[in-house]
Structure formats: structure tokens, C-alpha cells
Design a binder for these strands. Structure first.
Lengths: 202, 202
DNA sequence: GGACCTTTTTGCAGTCACTGCAAGTTTGCA
DNA sequence: TGCAAACTTGCAGTGACTGCAAAAAGGTCC
């Protein structure tokens, strides 16, 4: 008896994951990332500590709430873009799509994360460590589209630029949120696209 | 009675640090990063575990052997470059100088690190987390040179591009070391300089 | 060489993230 | 209802990392 979309089990899992993510972000914003133990987070979300680690490989991961399906989803978008779209543009728009969707669904969480990341910018860098695997996936998709070998430097650079764009946009946004995060990410992407050799004039 | 350069104490410290770094890299290459405990590393270097943590904030840091003075040194090089050098170029050459020097002094260590990083690419990403502080320093130097506010996006992007260039070059080099690491880093920098919008043809 | 101060090393006790394993519980399905 | 697969949980254990206070050097002055 299975709705094509979601079984009871699936719904419960999604809710538990979301609860853990929320609890992590909320508590970390409230009293500082390392004054919160996984034990407290689990209690807040009403599950055991062991269950926390069934959902997230680390406390860091829970703070960022990296969606395990985001990687594959973006890779899919890249490979299925229209033929005439150049590889960088395909990558760029697949990342932007993912991010705007994320921001629409969880803007409140990002506002809290901002508080945490302002205190501990290194956490944002660490967050990307866990996505090293997805990066490989995306790089391969970009390589295929560009007609380059998977070992080529270019696809790696494109993907790394994406991480960097997001990372810089977030830190900039944490400093001063007069511009929306989405806009900042787009701007960062453009800069990587056209090259950093010439500094902008303001 | 102090040679202007180095006292006995200073020499001992440098030697201990180097021994810990070497021990970490050697053992990790030999039997896998997480089959080596800090206890074993400390024993190999003939110091106590507590002393290990007086030198390095984490096992990760010891593996990469991040020089705490590298950040300031590069920042200094950036600000003291000739006036007509554009900011990106100043940054680029200060990073390349640092890297080539490092590679000349410790080529053997990098060959061992390669082994470790091939198994665990995420360690390279994590390594940059600890340098979040230096990044700020460098970004400010670039901002000053570009005549931009410290809050501007551009300097952050330049610095992040540097990390990304290094990171991609290392992973590429680990896959296939027919090109030297120094050359790969330079190539990656160039790509960021001229922009990623157009994929290269090979 | 010895007294005295500063820096470094060390041991120890403690916290906490994270893991494997072996039940126990819940859900999906016939 | 009954069985199998998927989840949750507790438990015991490992190992990274920290603060503290005492021991060991190193540096300096006489």
C-alpha cells in the first residue's frame, strides 16, 4: 500500500531528519556551536543519539543539513540541459536552481545558520568536506558536457568555483545582508565566469 | 646569549614540529590516515601526546603541516608588490612563490601526502578549514590593493579561487603526476584569471 | 657553577564525537 | 495474522582534544 510518492515510513524519516537539522541549527544559534552536544540535539528532536548518527555522519553535517540527493539532482540537471548550453552555464544554472529552491524552503533556517557562521566561519569550509563525493559526480557531468577527460583540470575548477562562490556569498551575506543570498551567489558565479584578472570598480 | 636568528630552544621547536609532521605523513601514507592514532604519531616523534597538541590543533593540521607564518608572509608579499601590479596578479604570484618554496623544501613529504589524499580527498578540503583565519588576512590585503571595502565580494573570491586552484591542482596531480604540481597550480590560477565561461579545447 | 625566571613538556582526568553490534520496535505486504 | 525488511535504540568502546598543575629545560645574571 504505497503512494507512488511517499510511504508512512518515508514521511517519518523526512520529519526526523528535518527535526534533527532544525534542532542543531536552533541550539547552535542560541548558545554557540560547541556548547551544544549531540546528546542535547537528539533529545530536542526526541530521538536517541544513535539515531542522530544514522541520519548525519557528523554534527557538522547536521548543521548544514546537506541534502544527500542534491548532488545527483544537480548532476542530472547538468547532463539534461539543452545541447547548445555551454558547460559552465549548465553547471551555473543547476547550482542556482538548487540554491533558490533551498532558500525558498528554508529561509528561516538560513537566517539562524548565519548567526552560527558569523561566529565560526570555518564551519562553512568544513561543511564542504562532506560533499567531496558529490563534487566528483558533478565534475564528471561537467567533463562529459565539455567533451573533456574526467581527469582534466577544467571540470574540477568549475565545480570548485561553485563551492567557492557559494561559500563567499554566504560569508559576505553574513557580514551584511542588504543583498539577498541568491543575488550574491549569482554575482560570484558571474565573476568566476568572466575571470578575476580585472578587479571591479565600484 | 642569543644568535639574532635562532636559539637552541627555537631550533628544538622547529625540529619537533618537523618530526611530528613527518611522522604523521609517513604513518598515514603507510597504513591509512585513520588507522594511525595521535598516540602513535607522538611516540614516533618521541614526544608526549599532549605535546603533539601543543604544536598542532588537530591531526588534520599535522597532516598538511600548515605553516602558521605562511598567511602573514603571503599577505606581506601582496601589500609590498610594485604599485602597477594588479591585485589578482599580486595574489597569484605571492601564492605561487609560497608553493614553489614549499615544494622545494619538502617534495618528499608531498609525495607521501599524495598517497593519503588519493584515498581521502576530503582531508584536503578539511585542511583549508583551519586556514579560515589566514584567508581573512589575505582577503584584506587584496581588498586594500584593489581599493575595495573589506566587505566586498571580490577579494573573497580571489582568495577562495586560490584555495580552489591549489586544491584542484593537488587532486589532479594525485590522479596523474605527469605534470608537476607547480605547473598545475599556475594553470589553475590562469583559468580563474581569464574566466571559466569558455571550456578549453584539448 | 648556582640562583632565578621563562618557556616547554608532560601526565592526568575528563568531555564528547563517533562506531559496531545485537537486540527491540515499527512498517509494508501478502 | 504473520513474516520480512527497515528503523530505532542501548551499550560498550575508541580516540581526538582540552584545562590544569607539576616537572623539566633553556636563558640570563652574578
Amino acid at each position: 500500500m504505497n503512494q507512488p510518492g511517499e510511504s508512512l515510513r518515508d514521511r517519518k524519516k523526512r520529519r526526523t531528519r528535518a527535526a534533527l537539522e532544525r534542532a542543531t541549527v536552533r541550539l547552535a544559534a542560541e548558545r554557540g556551536y560547541d556548547h551544544v552536544t549531540v546528546e542535547e540535539i537528539a533529545a530536542e528532536a526526541d530521538v536517541s543519539v544513535r539515531t542522530f548518527f544514522n541520519y548525519f555522519a557528523s554534527k557538522d553535517e547536521a548543521l548544514i543539513g546537506a541534502d544527500p540527493e542534491a548532488g545527483p539532482r544537480m548532476a542530472e540537471r547538468i547532463t539534461s540541459a539543452a545541447d547548445e548550453v555551454p558547460p559552465f552555464e549548465a553547471y551555473r544554472s543547476s547550482v542556482l536552481a538548487e540554491i533558490t529552491e533551498e532558500l525558498n524552503n528554508a529561509r528561516d533556517l538560513w537566517l539562524l545558520r548565519k548567526e552560527v557562521l558569523m561566529q565560526r566561519p570555518d564551519l562553512l569550509v568544513r561543511a564542504f568536506a562532506s560533499s567531496a563525493e558529490s563534487e566528483q559526480l558533478l565534475a564528471n557531468a561537467v567533463a562529459a558536457r565539455a567533451g573533456l577527460a574526467e581527469s582534466d583540470l577544467y571540470p574540477r575548477l568549475v565545480v570548485a568555483a561553485g563551492s567557492a562562490a557559494f561559500r563567499c556569498a554566504v560569508t559576505r551575506w553574513a557580514d551584511d545582508d542588504s543583498l539577498s543570498l541568491g543575488v550574491l551567489v549569482a554575482e560570484a558565479f558571474d565573476a568566476f565566469g568572466t575571470g578575476l584578472a580585472h578587479a571591479p570598480r565600484r
